[in-house]
């Protein structure tokens, strides 16, 4: 068992008295592919927002490699290796594909000299070449100069992941990467994420598509109403009564279990 890269310790978040996250603790092991799942409104995106620093936790602590990151402003976290994608694609619509990716390099190039060196005036700067190379490797080379707004949904989803990757993160937070994709696109995405994982990046994925979760992730954390109800292997997650109940309600959970047992016997 490797040491956790990221860990949450008794984290809670209230919005004006409304508890959205209550006492959630879990660990994301180094190099793992962890899924964060749960019904709609369970607080998954809020957990992402807490980790990336959009909100500060009301209580508890978030640690990266054992160090608390709660005091760090949101913009410094990507430099430490926490990069993320968003549930609704949030690429910059007026920037070209390659410019969006170059924005992801900011954490490594944002010093004064880096800010004032032209990156697109004379020929190709090293930053531009790096961004284009990465797009190339990820199979997105046909699009670099185009403005993002006009591209198909699946492509934009991938570009968002590339933008996060180019920051050279230790952990990549992906918020519903497969939402809105068809089966072929989802299979594509799965291979794409596997490649990323094999290059040593830890993945934390919020996802509704359970078949993708099972085929991609080894470890799952399940939230319901802002509380953790399951933490363990993805293989056994669907047999867990609490998880079934959260997704299907009590009576359906019973039915599903009998069905599953019947299938098992058959």
């Amino acid at each position: 068992m490797s040491a956790p890269l990221l860990s949450l310790h008794a984290v809670s978040k209230n919005f004006g008295g409304l508890a959205v996250i209550t006492d959630v603790s879990f660990e994301v092991p180094q190099g793992s592919r962890t899924a964060l799942i749960g019904p709609n409104g369970a607080g998954k995106t809020t957990v992402f927002n807490l980790i990336s620093g959009v909100f500060a936790p009301s209580e508890g602590e978030i640690r990266l490699e054992g160090q608390s990151i709660d005091a760090l402003p949101s913009r410094s976290r990507i430099g430490l290796g926490v990069a993320r994608s968003f549930q609704n694609i949030r690429l910059m619509p007026h920037l070209s594909v390659v410019e969006n990716v170059m924005l992801g390099q900011q954490a490594r190039a944002g010093n004064l000299a880096g800010m004032l060196t032209p990156i697109s005036l004379f020929g190709r700067s090293k930053w531009r070449r790096e961004a284009e190379d990465l797009l190339d490797r990820m199979g997105l080379s046909t699009y670099p100069g185009e403005v993002v707004a006009t591209l198909p949904y699946g492509i934009r989803k991938k570009i968002e992941v590339v933008r996060a990757l180019v920051a050279k993160p230790k952990i990549l937070l992906l918020d519903e990467p497969a939402a809105g994709l068809n089966n072929t696109e989802t299979a594509n995405l799965r291979d794409f994420l596997m490649t990323i994982s094999q290059s040593g990046v830890t993945l934390l994925v919020v996802e509704h598509d359970m078949s993708l979760v099972r085929s991609l992730c080894d470890h799952a954390v399940v939230l319901n109403f802002g509380r953790k109800i399951y933490d363990g292997s993805t293989r056994t997650v669907q047999d867990d009564p609490a998880v079934l109940e959260a997704y299907l309600g009590t009576r359906q959970a019973e039915k599903a279990r009998t069905h599953a047992e019947a299938d098992h016997v058959a």
Binding site: S52, R75, I78, G79, E99, M115, I119
Partner: peptide, 21 residues
């Protein structure tokens, strides 16, 4: 320059630009 890039990014989406560092 990268400064110009961050200017245009800030115009499009402040929250995400901040998260990009």
């Amino acid at each position: 320059t990268r400064f110009g890039l961050t200017m245009r990014a800030t115009h499009d989406d402040e929250v995400v630009t901040d998260l990009m560092g």
